[in-house]
C-alpha cells in the first residue's frame, strides 16, 4: 500500500482537481452555491416562525436551533464538497466505473470518494457558517472548534454515505435507496435531539449517526470539553473504520464477480 506522504499528496491533488472540475462552468457553479444558501435560509424560516410563537421547545430556543442547523449544514457541505463521490458510490459500483480506479495504485475508496465534488456543498458551508455565527452560541474559543466540529460531522456523514452505498456491491441497483437513507440521517440530524426519547435516542447514536453529525458537534461548539471532544473523535474513528471495512468487503465480493454481473 502507498506511503502516507504519497497518499496525502494524491488526496489533495484529487480534491483540487475535483473542485476545479465542478467550477469549470462558472455560471452554473455560482448558481448552485447561492441557491443552496437561499434554500437553507427559506427552510429555516419555519423555525423562525414557530419559535416566534413558542420561544422554547424542550430546552431549545431559536439560537440553539440555529447552531444545530448551521452545524449540520456545515458538515454536509464539507462532506459533499470534498468527498462528493461518496454520494454517487452506488451508481459508480453498479456501472462498473470502479474498474479503472482499481487498476491504479491508489486506495480505491479514497479515489472514488474524492471525485465529483458538489458545488451545492459550498453553499451549505457558507450558510452553515453564517447560521453558526448568528446563533450566539459559540464559546469564546471560537473558530477552530467550529471548523473541527464541522470536519468531524463531515467525516461521519461521508462514512454514512459509504456504508449506505456499499449495499450496491451485494444488491445491485441501490442508488435511490442509498441516497434516501443518507437523507434520513441528514433529516434526523436537523431536529433537536430532545424531541426523541427512549429507544429512538439510541438509534440516533448508532445505526443512524445523526447525533454525531448535529447534536454532539453543536455541543462541542457551545461548551467545549474533553468529554465531547473525545466522544466525537471516537465516533469519527469508529464509523470510518466500519465504513471502510464494509467497503473493502464489498470490493472483495466485486472482484470475485458475485454481483449482477455483465461481462463480455
Amino acid at each position: 500500500m502507498p506511503g502516507t506522504k504519497a497518499t496525502v499528496r494524491f488526496a489533495t491533488a484529487l480534491v483540487r482537481t475535483s473542485v476545479r472540475s465542478a467550477m469549470a462552468e462558472r455560471g452554473a457553479f455560482a448558481m448552485r452555491v447561492v441557491l443552496m444558501a437561499v434554500n437553507n435560509g427559506i427552510f429555516f424560516t419555519f423555525w423562525i416562525v414557530l419559535m416566534s410563537r413558542v420561544p422554547r421547545i424542550r430546552g431549545y430556543s431559536l439560537g440553539d436551533v440555529a447552531l444545530l442547523y448551521g452545524v449540520v449544514a456545515l458538515a454536509n457541505g464539507v462532506a459533499v464538497f470534498v468527498a462528493g463521490g461518496a454520494q454517487y458510490l452506488a451508481r459508480v459500483i453498479h456501472d462498473g466505473e470502479l474498474d479503472a480506479l482499481i487498476a491504479q495504485p491508489k486506495p480505491t475508496l479514497l479515489y472514488a470518494a474524492g471525485l465529483r465534488s458538489q458545488p451545492s456543498g459550498l453553499g451549505d458551508i457558507v450558510s452553515g457558517l453564517i447560521m453558526i455565527s448568528l446563533s450566539g452560541r459559540v464559546a469564546p474559543v471560537g473558530i477552530p472548534i467550529v471548523l473541527a466540529a464541522g470536519a468531524a460531522g463531515a467525516m461521519v456523514l461521508v462514512s454514512t454515505a459509504v456504508l449506505m452505498h456499499s449495499a450496491a456491491f451485494w444488491l445491485g441497483r441501490t442508488e435511490s435507496a442509498s441516497r434516501q437513507l443518507y437523507e434520513v440521517t441528514l433529516m434526523f440530524s436537523l431536529y433537536p435531539d430532545t424531541l426523541f426519547t427512549g429507544p429512538m435516542r439510541w438509534i440516533l447514536f448508532t445505526a443512524i449517526p445523526a447525533g454525531f453529525v448535529g447534536y454532539l458537534p453543536a455541543e462541542a461548539i457551545r461548551a467545549p470539553s474533553l468529554w465531547t471532544a473525545s466522544a466525537l473523535g471516537a465516533a469519527v474513528v469508529a464509523y470510518a473504520v466500519v465504513a471502510s471495512s464494509v467497503f473493502a468487503r464489498g470490493l472483495r465480493a466485486y472482484s470475485s464477480g458475485s454481483r449482477f454481473a455483465t461481462f463480455t
Binding site: L50, V54, R56, I57, R58, Q180, E183, V184, M187, F188, Y191, T194, L195, F196
Partner: peptide, 22 residues
C-alpha cells in the same frame, strides 16, 4: 418515499408533542 414519509411524520409528531407541552 414511504419510509421517508413515516419518519417525517414521526419527527413532526414529536415536535408537536413538545410544542403542546410548552
Amino acid at each position: 418515499r414511504v419510509l421517508f414519509f413515516v419518519l417525517i411524520l414521526g419527527v413532526f409528531s414529536s415536535i408537536w408533542r413538545a410544542v403542546a407541552e410548552s
